[in-house]
Nucleic acid binder design. Structure first.
Lengths: 121, 121
DNA sequence: CATTGGTGCAACCGCAGAGTTGCATTTCCC
DNA sequence: GGGAAATGCAACTCTGCGGTTGCACCAATG
């Protein structure tokens, strides 16, 4: 309801990369930092960091501002928050759905197919 | 704190793909369904669906069980839920961090660097 | 003004993953 | 038994993306 699929998509893609998550951790710790600084903390080149920061920025997870000759980035919690809500909503919806199905399966009608066996591996 | 980085990683990767999200939606709606059935609802081949289901299963987002000659899948909300908590925790941590930095920047000490200008684009 | 530290830009590489097709195999059902 | 429906397996293609390197460009500073 609250946020749209597409925005969530960009956030999920942004967060799916482990380097990007490390980058966010570093940024959150530093408060604010430049691409060069961050590249010093991770085992990748500055250019790689720049590219990552670009996708993070497009997901709204970081903000940047120029200060003299350097560009400082800082973290933005908002999209993370709305994504969390999106996930929680979805989990709740699934739960409701499963509950409804279980009720139907156990009580009134004939069962056309059984529940899948619990197949942990 | 609650769940480990690696598990979250697999969930995020699984959710990052739009086809996989559609697949989960379809599955949640159907209650349970086979790869063949699902392939009928999405614009991809059955084999593609099978591969997606494999990564979803490894992320714990679906469960499957054999019923005669067909394999039925159903959705599992738990990992979604813990991921949501993970994101929310992180967002909160960032918020605290930003607050702390703002306090430091405004009050006691000299400011070594200014806040980045608000650069929405 | 020349140097130096920080960015921006572009080309390039390698690989994983999303997708396909074809075929073998199992199981249901007449 | 013998199709027909569903799954399993394998090989293959192709695009995207994470990463690098090299160089040009700016701006602070002695």
């Amino acid at each position: 309801m609250s946020v749209d699929e597409h925005e969530i998509g960009t956030v999920l893609v942004a967060l799916a990369d482990p380097t990007r998550r490390e980058l966010l951790d570093a940024l959150a710790e530093e408060g604010q930092a430049s691409a060069t600084t961050l590249a010093g903390r991770l085992p990748v080149s500055r250019q790689a960091v720049v590219k990552h920061l670009r996708v993070l920025e497009e997901a709204g997870l970081v903000r940047y501002g120029r200060l003299g000759r350097e560009v400082l980035y800082e973290v933005r919690p908002a999209p993370l928050d709305s994504s969390a809500r999106w996930l929680a909503e979805r989990a709740a919806a699934w739960d409701r759905r499963l509950e409804a199905i279980k009720r139907v399966a156990e009580n009134p009608p004939a069962r056309p197919s059984d529940k899948p066996a619990d197949h942990e591996h």
